[in-house]
Amino acid sequence: MMQDNKTIIIILLILALFTGATIELAEGSSYVGVALLVIAAVLFTRIRLTKSVILKNSRLYIVLGLFIVFSDLLYNFITHSSLGTLDSMTFFLGISLIAFGINKPQLHSLGEFGAYISAVFIALFLIFYSMFGALKIDFLHLFDHYLVLMPTVAMIKILGIPVEIIATETVTLYGAEPMTIVIGGPCSGLYSMFLLVGIVAGYSRMEKMDFRKSLQLLGFAVLVAYIANLVRVLILYISAYLYGIDVMMMVHTHIGWMIFAFTAGIIMYIMNRK
């Protein structure tokens, strides 16, 4: 049980660091994002996973990984684009494939785990953001309105903070002066859910967990991500109300993954103990 608890805690820390790295790379400091990824990689070496089978055609994965990294960087250079969340995860996929192809057991395992996380994240991102948009499926706006904005507005009103819904993803908060806040995009918490699903998929696949246990872990992971995001949005409301919009934007960039780690740690630790 002690070893299981230790493994769960390390996985939660890795999960939180990956979430934080994605947010920092997309909206905050690139240096902080890279540092969080490095720390997560180091922590992964502390996990005792089932040994992976080293493949004979390992060079193929190294070449494929290098191609993905080079292609992503070249595309952004040609289009003069800044690196976003999808670019970060694509880059992470390429690095993971390179590590997967190296004939060292720990690097191989790390690469396999990272490839699962990034591949699942990219697939879900393309489905929910690209495909749904192309098919004009209004899932994201409905999710933001009914599952994020309305619950958090109801909770913030209980605290006595005056707030008014003025659009599907927009509220007016009445602090020192009226402030318009858009609850959408990263505030939906879907990025955290995508990362969690990828981590669960990778860990369950590498540990050869049975399908039922994997689904249970996945359900808890999604619940953790949802609750953590509601807490994050509430903190944004309170920050804006007490200190203004500028402080709220600073909190918006950095606090999300920290709140996520704290909430995830409590819920998953309790579930593991039971």
Rank of each mutant, 00 (worst) to 15 (best):
A119M: 12
Q3D: 12
M150Q: 11
I245P: 00
S88P: 01
L230W: 04
F128A: 07
L43W: 00
L17W: 05
G20E: 02
T172I: 15
L97E: 00
I23V: 10
A167N: 15
V222R: 05
L126D: 06
I14F: 08
F132G: 08
L223H: 00
A228C: 06
L17A: 03
F128L: 13
F67P: 05
R48F: 01
G244C: 03
A264M: 11
I98E: 02
S52V: 08
F18M: 08
G175F: 13
I161D: 01
D87I: 03
E169H: 15
N76R: 15
G219K: 12
V34T: 14
N272M: 12
L215S: 07
I68D: 04
D87P: 02
C187R: 14
M248E: 05
I259Y: 03
L97W: 03
N57T: 04
L236W: 07
K274S: 08
F260G: 01
A16N: 12
I102A: 05
K274N: 11
L36S: 08
F139V: 03
A99E: 03
E207L: 15
S81W: 11
F211C: 12
M250E: 11
K56D: 07
H252L: 07
A264L: 14
V53C: 06
K208Q: 10
M248S: 08
Y226K: 07
M209L: 12
F92T: 02
V38L: 15
P151S: 14
A240E: 01
P178D: 10
R205P: 11
V63D: 06
P178V: 13
I259G: 01
Y243P: 10
I156M: 00
T7F: 12
V32D: 11
V200F: 06
S192K: 02
M193R: 01
P162E: 09
F77V: 13
A41G: 09
E169W: 06
M150V: 13
I10M: 07
L17K: 06
S130E: 10
M89Q: 01
I267K: 15
A21P: 03
P162M: 14
V53E: 07
I8N: 14
V200G: 02
R59V: 08
F211A: 13
L64Q: 01
A201Q: 09
I166C: 10
I165W: 08
E112R: 14
S214P: 05
I11E: 00
